[in-house]
């Protein structure tokens, strides 16, 4: 009996020691922050690990605010934020580098005759002030508001751009972009929002003030429902060699294709 336990313990210790060793080669890059950037940073990290054997990349999805705090406190190499830094955050000695832009498309059912809206109308709809499609030039149907769950980066982005924080009268709060698209596709009265790159043909994207959401209109800033994906670093402290290499790689034009295929619009 004792022998058995002894063997188990030595196996466990051995395993712990061996995994500990594996991490030592090649250096590490740790990132922390925005959950909306998960796909982009995940794809970039994977590509970086493939190109540099032995390097370990980590990403901790905590949210933009926590990511900025983490880099300020030196708990990670690069903080990830899906909003621009505030003035007081820059005064703490943080620098922002825009990695990519993310467009949020406002989507309706393909049978809906409405094609264009301004930001104020969208805000009015989501706050529950406009409740019928006929008020905005559509058919006589109640508007069904589809959104994402609290804490979702897309919801946070959409609400802050339209100025509807904490005021949205959601009928449904769904937990994935795919569910939002499926639901909007199945209900003629529905309106929802989703990351531009994920939108499929089963739903119709609205143009905002006449500007159709495309990669170009997001990049030149004319499509307004968009937000930046920001890399946050400390201004005076230099990154470790590996982290700097990663930073240079993801901000180079080589990373553009990976960023686009992960659904965002690269700026470099």
């Amino acid at each position: 009996m004792k022998k058995f336990i002894g063997t188990m313990i030595s196996v466990a210790v051995l395993a712990a020691v061996m995994t500990g060793c594996g991490k030592e080669d090649g250096g590490t890059v740790s990132t922390d922050g925005s959950t909306s950037m998960e796909k982009v940073i995940g794809a970039l990290g994977e590509a970086f690990e493939q190109n540099n054997s032995g390097v370990t990349f980590t990403y901790n999805p905590t949210g933009s605010g926590s990511g900025i705090t983490a880099v300020a406190e030196g708990r990670c190499d690069i903080g990830l934020s899906s909003r621009n830094l505030k003035e007081e955050e820059k005064l703490q000695g943080l620098t922002e580098t825009i990695l990519a832009l993310d467009g949020i498309a406002v989507i309706v059912n393909p049978d809906n005759p409405v094609n264009d809206m301004d930001l104020g109308t969208i805000a009015g709809i989501y706050k529950g002030e406009i409740t019928n499609w006929k008020e905005v030039g559509g058919s006589d149907l109640e508007i069904v508001l589809i959104g994402r769950e609290a804490g979702s980066g897309t919801r946070d982005g959409f609400e802050s751009i339209t100025g509807t924080e904490d005021a949205c009268q959601y009928r449904q709060e769904l937990t994935s972009t795919g569910d939002v698209i499926t639901t909007v596709a199945g209900n003629p009265g529905a309106i929802g929002y989703a990351s531009l790159a994920s939108v499929k043909d089963t739903v119709k994207m609205l143009s905002i003030d006449g500007i159709v959401p495309t990669e170009e209109s997001v990049k030149d800033g004319s499509y307004v429902v968009q937000r930046p994906f920001v890399l946050v670093t400390k201004s005076e402290k230099k990154l470790s060699e590996t982290a700097q290499k990663f930073f240079d790689y993801i901000t180079s034009s080589d990373a553009g294709d990976i960023i686009s295929s992960a659904g965002a619009v690269p700026v470099n």
């Binding site: 959950t35 999805p61 949210g63 769950e149 609290a150 804490g151 979702s152 980066g153 959601y170 009928r171 449904q172 709060e173 769904l174 937990t175």
Partner: peptide, 25 residues
């Protein structure tokens, strides 16, 4: 999943879904 007081044709959130939908973020 909207956190409304329950009504038969109203969008509602259960104890289980309240945990599951927000935990990841």
């Amino acid at each position: 999943n909207a956190p409304n007081m329950p009504e038969i044709f109203q969008s509602v959130r259960f104890l289980t879904t309240a945990v599951a939908s927000e935990m990841s973020y």
